[in-house]
Lab assay of single mutants.
Amino acid sequence: KELVLVLYDYQEKSPREVTVKKGDILTLLNSTNKDWWKVEVDDRQGFIPAAYLKKL
Score class of each variant (00 low, 15 high):
residue 1 K to Y: 13
residue 1 K to Q: 13
residue 1 K to V: 13
residue 1 K to E: 09
residue 1 K to N: 11
residue 1 K to S: 11
residue 2 E to R: 12
residue 2 E to V: 14
residue 2 E to F: 10
residue 3 L to E: 06
residue 3 L to N: 06
residue 3 L to P: 04
residue 3 L to V: 08
residue 4 V to I: 05
residue 4 V to A: 09
residue 5 L to D: 01
residue 5 L to E: 10
residue 5 L to T: 06
residue 5 L to C: 07
residue 6 V to G: 00
residue 7 L to G: 01
residue 7 L to S: 02
residue 7 L to D: 01
residue 7 L to F: 02
residue 7 L to R: 06
residue 8 Y to S: 09
residue 8 Y to Q: 14
residue 8 Y to D: 09
residue 9 D to C: 05
residue 9 D to G: 06
residue 9 D to Y: 04
residue 10 Y to G: 00
residue 11 Q to G: 07
residue 12 E to I: 10
residue 12 E to H: 08
residue 12 E to L: 12
residue 13 K to V: 08
residue 13 K to F: 06
residue 13 K to C: 10
residue 13 K to G: 08
residue 13 K to R: 14
residue 13 K to A: 12
residue 15 P to W: 09
residue 16 R to F: 14
residue 16 R to G: 15
residue 16 R to I: 12
residue 17 E to K: 05
residue 17 E to Q: 11
residue 18 V to Q: 02
residue 19 T to S: 15
residue 19 T to D: 03
residue 19 T to E: 03
residue 19 T to M: 04
residue 21 K to H: 12
residue 21 K to L: 08
residue 23 G to C: 08
residue 23 G to F: 05
residue 24 D to F: 08
residue 24 D to K: 07
residue 24 D to A: 13
residue 24 D to M: 15
residue 26 L to P: 01
residue 27 T to I: 15
residue 29 L to Y: 04
residue 29 L to G: 01
residue 31 S to W: 11
residue 31 S to F: 07
residue 31 S to L: 04
residue 32 T to A: 13
residue 33 N to E: 09
residue 33 N to R: 11
residue 33 N to V: 05
residue 34 K to G: 11
residue 34 K to L: 11
residue 35 D to C: 13
residue 36 W to Y: 10
residue 36 W to V: 04
residue 37 W to G: 01
residue 37 W to D: 00
residue 37 W to E: 00
residue 41 V to T: 12
residue 41 V to M: 09
residue 42 D to L: 14
residue 42 D to R: 11
residue 43 D to F: 11
residue 43 D to S: 13
residue 43 D to H: 12
residue 43 D to E: 13
residue 44 R to I: 08
residue 45 Q to W: 09
residue 46 G to L: 09
residue 46 G to C: 08
residue 47 F to A: 03
residue 48 I to K: 00
residue 48 I to L: 13
residue 49 P to C: 05
residue 50 A to G: 05
residue 50 A to W: 02
residue 50 A to S: 12
residue 52 Y to E: 01
residue 52 Y to W: 07
residue 53 L to A: 10
residue 54 K to P: 00
residue 55 K to Q: 07
residue 55 K to I: 11
residue 56 L to Q: 05
